[in-house]
Design a protein around this nucleic acid. Structure first.
Length: 621
RNA sequence: GUCCCGGUAGCUCAGUUGGAUAGAGCAGCAGAUUUCUAAUCUGCAGGUCGGUGGUUCGAGCCCACCCCGGGACGCCA
């Protein structure tokens, strides 16, 4: 599951350096038999234990039949000079922990090394390729909260890999083909609707109506007959039955004409896609998500690959007929994967198989990530297994691609049930975003009304822009900050309350830094070498140094919440630093220069981390 | 019925190779402001980590069983 190729060796990383130092110390002290022991360097659980701790001694002592504290002492005594130079004298504590406190010069040097355009994040220069399945909208349907998650989680994962220098293919697997679209298209054409003047709302309504028209209420008819419903009700249901049959026949006819390339039908179909996608792109832009027409790889893109896909499974004897349908069976699993319906048409699994093959073999993806609703867990498990059975996960050079479903949970309302409007419909994404932006703007305007607020001099338009950034950050951060696999309650009050672990809190820390740097620039104050003296400076510095490793971990684990946790910690330690360590007032020139440098680096890291989540950081708020 | 995911403070959640006294935020209480942006900071209080048993020097984490909640289970996607 873990994508280890997202991790690289960073010799400048402090934990990496400590780990290497202790490894050689262990070998020197205890011989080759212990050479494979992981020093297990971790950030200290508590600042009073130092900056890092090494936990190797207990396990090692166990296997050697020795006292853990003695083992720790032996290893510490054998520490190479480079390790001694980096650290204060080691302490052995508790059952055998080695407490590690870095010398301030070590921290300062590491910060100086990090002060490069990359901020210490390694750049694989396109050595690896990932395809990220995201967004997944359906043509003629409004985006709702489910698409919010598929879109922003996918975009963040894509950005994580981009930041690490991977070649990234965003894949928007549109629902733009098949009977549902044909039903909508047929209904619109029957009604002679002018498709040059329709909005997505119109399409959405047509889609719903078409679905309802097509719903063949045989069960209702049977029940009505059985319970002796009145003749009026029976006639109604019979009419519905007949109407549904006609609508479906029309849809099938439309689908056939679409598939055979009837120019008029194809043009109308394209128009539905254009109307839908225009709004999708607008929403993506509003959300700070990189999603454009070139990322479209919808169902229609794979339509000519479906038959060959089915054939390949049949040829390989992996698909068998069952009740007229074609299924792939798996060892030790009851549930088969259906790849062709009994009427000979294919279904979503078929498209997913074809799409995965395309991503691996045509795009050359080493890793294929699916940001899709958690309810499709079993589906992807089956699809992935089917792909492995037929061998499509292997590249021409024999290397294997990894397939990972990032299942995300539902967005719930206050009642802990899937978020719905009062009338029982899904909230459109647009409505949610509009509300969040309105809230963000209200807060920003309210604050700007105070004469001594830094934003007091800004005009209405400028404040609106900041408010929009705040509102969007509130929603995105709240979504990305918890484990994506879990459901969460959509509580706008909490998200835009601007207190605690929120996007606006991080933006605020960033704006505070920007304020200091602007004042310093106005006074002509320069930056200088960083010197770590106060505990708040040390805490901030150590957090900054964790950034490259955090980006790699978040990518390797496909876990945006790791990045969010880092952002919160950084904002938090900065605010504590801000409180305790004056930068511009009451500090001597060298301290001021050092702290300005620390501020500048913090701002860059904060902005960089937020940018991976597609969140903008205003200079004033 | 089978399978999957979850259950950690009043609420919302962190906690990945098993490590010291289980951490945050919100809500509550007590403090800090002639401010480098108080959308902040400091402190206090709050826990049978669903339960039972097991493995281990050591378990929120690993194993077994059970309880509770949610979800998925061939011709929708």
């Amino acid at each position: 599951m873990s994508q280890n190729h997202a991790r690289t060796t960073r010799p400048n990383d402090l934990a990496t350096r400590l780990s290497a130092g202790f490894s050689s110390a262990i070998t020197a002290a205890l011989g080759q038999s212990a050479a494979q022991t992981d020093p297990t360097i971790k950030a200290a659980a508590n600042p009073k234990f130092g900056d890092f701790q090494a936990n190797f001694a207990m396990g090692l002592a166990k296997s050697l039949g020795k006292n853990p504290r003695e083992v720790a002492q032996q290893v510490v005594d054998a520490a190479p000079q480079s390790l001694r130079d980096d650290c204060e004298p080691f302490e052995i504590a508790g059952p055998g922990f080695v407490n590690i406190r870095l010398r301030p010069e070590t921290i300062a040097a590491a910060l100086a090394a990090m002060d490069a355009p990359t901020l210490g994040v390694s750049n694989g220069a396109g050595a690896h390729t990932v395809a990220v399945d995201l967004c997944g909208v359906n043509v003629a349907k409004q985006m709702h909260v489910g698409h919010l998650r598929a879109t922003i989680i996918g975009d963040t994962i894509a950005r994580l890999f981009e930041r690490l220098g991977w070649k990234v293919f965003r894949q928007n697997h549109l629902g733009d083909w098949g009977l549902p679209i044909a039903m909508t298209l047929a209904a619109l054409r029957r009604a002679k609707v002018d498709l040059n003047r329709v909005t997505l709302n119109d399409l959405n309504r047509a889609y719903r109506n078409a679905q309802e028209q097509g719903r063949d209420d045989e069960a209702g008819l049977a029940a009505a007959e059985a319970t002796g419903a009145g003749p009026h009700r029976l006639a109604e249901l019979q009419a519905q039955h007949v109407g549904a049959a006609a609508a479906i026949a029309d849809a099938h006819d439309t689908l056939r004409r679409l598939q055979s390339g009837d120019p008029a039908v194809v043009a109308d179909w394209q128009r539905l896609i254009d109307v839908t996608m225009q709004e999708v792109y607008e929403t993506a832009q509003l959300l700070g998500v990189d999603l454009k027409p070139e990322h479209n790889r919808g169902e229609s893109f794979f339509r000519d690959r479906l038959a060959p896909t089915v054939d390949a499974f049949v040829q390989a004897n992996l698909a068998v007929r069952d009740a007229g349908a074609l299924v792939v069976r798996f060892e030790g699993r009851e549930r088969p994967l259906l790849i062709q319906k009994s009427d000979g048409t294919s279904l979503y699994a078929t498209t997913d198989l074809a799409a995965a093959r395309y991503r691996i073999q045509d795009l050359g993806a080493d890793l294929v990530v699916y940001c899709v609703d958690a309810r499709q867990r079993d589906h992807f498990k089956d699809v992935f297994d089917a792909l492995r059975l037929i061998g499509w996960t292997t590249h021409a050079d024999g290397t294997a691609a990894s397939l990972v479903h990032v299942p995300f949970g539902a967005v719930l309302g206050a009642d802990k049930r899937p978020l719905k409007t009062r009338s029982g419909e899904n909230f459109t994404l647009k409505a949610l975003l509009d509300e969040a932006i309105a809230r963000g703007r209200r807060e920003v305007h309210a604050r700007a009304a105070s004469p001594d607020a830094p934003t007091a001099s800004l005009n209405h338009t400028e404040l609106d822009a900041i408010g929009q950034a705040v509102g969007i950050a509130a929603i995105k951060y709240a979504d990305l900050a918890s484990d994506v696999g879990r459901d969460y309650v959509f509580d706008l009050d909490r998200m835009v309350s601007f207190e605690g672990d929120t996007g606006p809190y991080a933006q605020y820390a960033h704006a505070r830094i920007a304020g200091i740097l602007a004042k310093a620039a106005a006074k002509g104050l320069g930056r200088g070498a960083i010197a770590i003296t106060e505990p708040e400076e040390r805490a901030l510095a150590l957090n900054l140094l964790r950034y490259p490793g955090t980006v790699e971990d978040a990518a390797a684990q496909l876990a945006p919440n790791r990045l969010a946790a880092f952002i919160y910690e950084l904002a938090n330690t900065f605010n504590a630093f801000y409180q305790a360590c004056p930068v511009l007032r009451g500090s001597d020139e060298a301290t001021c220069a050092s702290r300005l440098q620390l501020c500048a680096l913090t701002q860059r890291v904060l902005a960089d981390a937020l940018s991976i989540m597609g969140i903008t950081a205003p200079l004033r708020m």
